[in-house]
Nucleic acid binder design. Structure first.
Lengths: 205, 205
DNA sequence: CCGACCTTACCGTCCGAACAGACGGGTACC
DNA sequence: GGTACCCGTCTGTTCGGACGGTAAGGTCGG
């Protein structure tokens, strides 16, 4: 288990700093995943990151700061990956919704990291999730407004997408890769061809 | 804050016991909801339940025991309410799925209590969720097997249902009552006449 | 007088946080 | 080029307090 032991000594000051910071963040997510939220302590994270407790506290002065750093990092990654995925989908509308669904086709590292970070934040202090909530609201806005999708279908896409990684987070009878793909296809088709979907709910156009 | 203060003195022994136990459980959920998971301590719960710390520990010998008791209570209630709701729906098949969706049309106390209990369990020790996971698996089995529903549609119903209360739990841009009702109607209709849903074009009835 | 139920008092541990420096590269000045 | 100094980075230690859990005793119905 010497994976996090050696620390580079001879590096420019700034680079060493940013590396240490990232190592701490990764160590924190590893601790949560492997040992649970209740084991997310300064000592555990510092030890796993190969840094002293004081060194840890230099980068994150409090537990709240650690959670915030975790959320910023992981939400940024997720937002970026969603964007490139949406750019790669060539449809007239609903690209972001399709990307949102496609992203959870199977559990990815970014999705898992995000999930456990949100869990940790909720466990430590609910208010830490405020900026995360704002990001989800932006995603929701983009799903229906920016993407020109029917409001209900846009919401359905997000509920299914979020539902899947949340089910994974708690392990509440998570579906197999095959099953989730079928569900995602079902919803994706519903969105792509939404003239038919409008008839199904019987709402006026 | 005298809401939990007075405690009945002159009652049969067993009744007093079960009352205290229930008061403790309710106090625990209240603490989680109002002060967060990190505030779920012996002292806080005992104080809110109007019982001494020792008295609390008589009923729940450890924090794990408290979480387990919380989960059992709340999952039992939820399971019962789902059953009566499903019995009240008169369709040839998919009654449980429709009930599962109808249940999250707006956030209920039972759903909220369950959510926060699961959150607390995940925060304290992941293994405590094992029996809860089994219950969710039973629900999933009933959704497709016992209910004679298409597997994919059954899974969709559960993902949407679970997705909604999980979104509520973390407050991740939760939809309004109107919006969620529309989504639930959309999925419900999809399920009700799934012959039409399969080719997405046929209009209902 | 017994057992269920509850109380007060207490203990050891762990954890978040503060702190006083050490190290070492960059920079300025001679 | 040497030397002195500064500051970003990091170390090891210490501390106060909260928290989970124990112990021992008391009350009351049966």
């Amino acid at each position: 288990m010497g994976e996090a032991g050696e620390r580079p000594k001879n590096l420019p000051v700034q680079e060493r700093a940013v590396l240490t910071r990232d190592r701490i963040l990764q160590a924190a997510t590893e601790v949560i995943i492997q040992e649970g939220v209740s084991s997310l302590t300064f000592d555990k994270v510092a030890a796993r990151a190969g840094v002293s407790k004081g060194g840890f506290l230099y980068h994150f002065g409090s537990k709240d700061a650690l959670i915030v750093g975790l959320l910023n990092q992981v939400m940024g990654v997720l937002d970026g990956e969603l964007n490139v995925l949406a750019d790669g989908i060539d449809v007239t509308q609903g690209a972001f919704a399709l990307a949102y669904l496609d992203y959870v086709r199977e559990p990815t590292k970014a999705a898992t990291d995000t999930a456990v970070s949100i869990l940790a934040a909720a466990a430590v202090d609910d208010d830490l999730l405020d900026s995360t909530r704002a990001t989800f609201q932006r995603w929701q806005d983009r799903l229906c407004q920016d993407d020109g999708l029917d409001e209900t279908e846009a919401l359905l896409a997000r509920i299914v997408g979020d539902g899947l990684w949340l089910i994974d987070l708690f392990g509440l009878a998570p579906p197999t890769a095959e099953e989730r793909s079928k569900v995602i296809d079902l919803v994706s088709n519903l969105i792509s061809d939404h003239g038919a979907a409008r008839d199904l709910i019987g709402s006026a156009e």
